Amino acid sequence: MFILLLALIMGAFIYLIVHYKVPILSQVIVVLQSFLRGTPNVVLLFFMFAALPELLTSITESLGIPFDANKIEPVFIVILTFSISLSVFQSEIIRGAILSVDQGQNEAAHSLGYSFWQTFRKVTLPQALIAAFPDIMNSLLVIIKGLSLAYLFTVIDILGQAKLLGGFTQRYLEAFAAAAIIYWVLCVLLTKIANKIEFKMREGFN
């Protein structure tokens, strides 16, 4: 959930930078979006595990701050990598959701004396959130399944536990089958909860 929240915050900043065509930054973001869309998460994880300690070491050394790259928690790198990777997709979800709101409603709100922020908060945001919610929840499911890669970097999740249990009992088939069922049940439950939340949101707006 924290990864999704962080990705949404990053995605919002990416959307604003591209939408308002911020000099230099918008061009950098376009290249970054292309790179992240075309690079598998497992490659990004290996890259970040190699690059982030080096980058932080260079920065801290230039500032004269003592820093031990070996003390970076693997889970921190996994969270950061997935958040950055997912942020470009969240920016597109945000863009599509905002564009889905009828421009006439915004104009009507302005004609009633609403300020830009009042219009955004009371008209644009509620409708954009409803439009974006299914895609945001799909992103959460993608995160849950994608985090199975984390065990490659000593971060123990559901698949990591299954591998450890399989190694301990020498019953890998049962261990991985149990992990698959847990992932499946978890995704089914989240989907049902998301559907109920979406229904309540639409009911409340209407």
Rank of each mutant, 00 (worst) to 15 (best):
L4S: 12
L6C: 12
L6P: 00
M10V: 11
M10Q: 09
M10I: 15
G11Y: 06
Y15Q: 06
Y15D: 09
L16C: 04
H19K: 10
Y20G: 02
V22E: 00
P23T: 02
L25R: 00
S26N: 09
S26Y: 07
V31R: 09
S34Y: 10
L36S: 10
R37Q: 14
G38W: 11
G38D: 12
T39P: 02
P40L: 11
P40R: 00
V42H: 00
V42Q: 06
L44Q: 13
L44H: 04
L45Y: 05
L45A: 09
F47V: 13
A50Y: 14
A51S: 14
P53I: 08
S58K: 12
S58I: 11
E61P: 00
G64I: 05
G64Q: 09
A69V: 13
K71I: 12
K71C: 04
I72S: 02
E73C: 00
V75E: 08
I77G: 09
V78H: 04
I79D: 13
T81Y: 01
F82Y: 07
F82I: 07
S87G: 02
V88A: 06
Q90L: 15
S91W: 07
I93W: 01
G96F: 07
Q103M: 11
Q103K: 09
N106L: 11
H110A: 11
H110T: 10
G113A: 11
S115E: 00
F116K: 13
T119K: 04
T119Q: 02
F120L: 03
R121G: 00
T124P: 01
T124L: 05
A128P: 05
I130G: 02
F133T: 07
I136Q: 04
I136C: 06
N138K: 02
S139E: 09
L141V: 15
I143N: 08
G146L: 05
G146V: 12
A150I: 12
Y151S: 12
Y151C: 10
V155I: 10
V155T: 03
V155S: 02
D157G: 13
D157A: 10
I158T: 07
I158K: 11
G160S: 07
L165N: 11
G167L: 08
T169V: 12
Q170D: 09
R171E: 11
L173V: 13
E174H: 05
E174R: 13
A175G: 00
F176E: 00
F176T: 08
A178G: 06
A179L: 06
W184V: 04
L186R: 02
V188Q: 14
V188S: 09
K192P: 01
I193F: 13
N195G: 15
K196D: 03
K196I: 15
K196L: 13
I197Y: 07
M201F: 09
M201C: 08
M201D: 03
G204P: 00
F205W: 15
